[in-house]
């Protein structure tokens, strides 16, 4: 369960006071709004990154743990960006291995060997029928493939919540629809609360919460 309370985004001459948000396991919240209003910045703030250009205040809590004072690496929140940013010096399999928790996580063996980690990563690729791409590099993948690998990599880390910044908007409409449907399904089944920033109001799944920042915008 991800809670965001008393959240305010402010700049010199405007302010957005968000309603309190609660996102349950497997639930998706889509944030929309005109560009420049601070959608992506909000995600970076949730992630724990340094926020530039605007001020954001509020309380974040995840499974009843308050996150505000924690560093990025302690929050256990995943991030999926439009540029998937697979690490270029690693192949697909190693990208996933990189994200696997050091202690083996919930599903794997405790303190796995390198071999076991690779097997685990390969199993995850197999589950989405992409095992044949294991030894490819980022540049050898198509856009859709890259997005899928990106999501698998994010999930491999077993995040407590997932943030997505227009994750599928670079794909052509048909692929985008396919991949996003696949992704939402996957997220629901894993029970990860997720927030997605999107500029496309028509692409909001029926089951998702929707938060339009423009509604709460006011000039000061």
């Amino acid at each position: 369960m991800l809670h965001i309370t008393d959240c305010q985004i402010s700049a010199d001459d405007w302010l957005i006071a968000l309603p309190n948000i609660a996102i349950a396991s497997g639930e998706l919240c889509v944030i929309t709004g005109p560009s420049g209003i601070g959608k992506s910045t909000l995600l970076h703030w949730l992630l724990g990154d340094v926020v530039q250009h605007v001020n954001i205040s509020g309380t974040i809590s995840l499974n009843n743990v308050q996150l505000n004072s924690l560093k990025i690496e302690q929050r256990r929140i995943g991030l999926l960006m439009q540029d998937v940013l697979l690490f270029p010096h690693l192949n697909v399999l190693d990208n996933i291995c990189f994200a696997l928790p050091a202690d083996g996580g919930m599903w794997g063996t405790k303190n796995p060997t390198k071999h076991q980690r690779k097997a685990q990563a390969l199993a995850m690729l197999e589950s989405i029928d992409m095992a044949h791409l294991a030894h490819h590099t980022s540049e050898q993948l198509s856009g859709g493939e890259r997005s899928r690998v990106g999501l698998i990599r994010a999930l491999a880390n077993e995040p407590q919540a997932l943030l997505m910044d227009e994750p599928f908007s670079a794909l052509d409409p048909k692929t985008s629809a396919q991949v996003s449907e696949w992704a939402f399904h996957h997220l629901r089944s894993k029970g990860v609360p997720s927030i997605m920033v999107s500029h496309d109001i028509n692409a909001i799944p029926a089951h998702a919460q929707h938060l339009d920042l423009a509604q709460y915008y006011r000039r000061i």
Binding site: E73, Q74, R75, L79, L85, N157
Partner: peptide
Amino acid sequence: RYELLAASFGF
């Protein structure tokens, strides 16, 4: 952002 991603993975 590469490092940001790695941070989100807990590094």
